[in-house]
């Protein structure tokens, strides 16, 4: 009995779940604290899935569901690329491809005070971190890391931004480097910023490098590792 219960959560990890699946039973793991990510919700003792995708688990206690979609659902601690839509007295309004515009408090910068509020033109691209993502509220963003340092957050200058699915942007960030990026990086030098909301920014010295890199990344979504490498080689051959 006990074996069965403890094995049930592991059986769901890395497998496809659909909305309504009960993926965890809290009654069997009373002495643990767990953290829930996107796509999961708690009903008393049952943790159930709210969207279709793959259930992921990261040690020691994080659970979330991964899926690939065009629309981004904000989630705390995600890094995203946002576009400034409007600026108000207290907040910048930022488009992060979510269901609602996100707020970026004017003081959420390193050493931010009332005196040194930055000025952003409408249409500026920013690299940001999601701080709050609650139901019924606009998500809140920040331009600093958890310790209040600027890190790499802030406005991105020049370069080219394009949109992908959330699944592809997650792949680009995965820990053994994504084969497209690896193959491209061998031949070309470019800068890249990936937001989990499916936005990718690329910058390089010459425009044709940017175009090649951007198109290679966009085309790589449905290709296997070997195919991705072949595709990149083919593209690079064309350019030279």
């Amino acid at each position: 009995m006990e074996i069965k219960q403890s094995s049930s959560p592991t059986s769901f990890i890395d497998s496809t779940v659909v909305p309504g699946d009960v993926v965890l039973d809290l009654s069997s793991m009373t002495n643990q604290t767990i953290k829930l990510g996107g796509g999961l919700r708690q009903d008393c003792d049952a943790i159930s899935a709210m969207k279709a995708g793959t259930l992921r688990f990261s040690k020691p206690n994080k659970y979330w569901i991964e899926s690939s979609q065009k629309r981004y659902v904000p989630c705390v601690e995600d890094t995203v690329l946002g576009i400034v839509v409007d600026s108000k007295a207290d907040n910048f309004l930022i488009d992060i491809k979510g269901p609602a515009l996100a707020f970026l408090p004017v003081l959420a910068f390193e050493g931010g005070t009332r005196r040194n509020i930055p000025k952003f033109e409408v249409g500026t691209l920013l690299y940001l971190r999601v701080v709050k993502a609650n139901f019924g509220m606009n998500p809140e963003l920040s331009c600093t890391d958890a310790s209040g340092k600027a890190a790499e957050f802030g406005p991105l200058k020049d370069g080219y931004m394009f949109e992908t699915s959330t699944g592809l942007s997650r792949k680009l960030l995965s820990s053994p480097t994504c084969p497209v990026l690896e193959a491209l990086g061998k031949k070309l030098s470019f800068e890249i910023a990936v937001g989990l909301n499916g936005r990718v920014w690329v910058n390089a010295a010459s425009p044709d490098t940017i175009v090649v890199a951007a198109n290679a990344i966009m085309n790589s979504e449905s290709l296997s590792t070997a195919q991705q490498i072949i595709m990149v080689e083919h593209l690079l051959k064309n350019i030279q």
Partner: peptide, 15 residues
């Protein structure tokens, strides 16, 4: 409506 409109960044325009 603001959230649903598609918009172009300055970066893209310039590029």
């Amino acid at each position: 409506r603001l959230a649903n409109t598609w918009r172009l960044t300055l970066n893209e325009k310039n590029f």
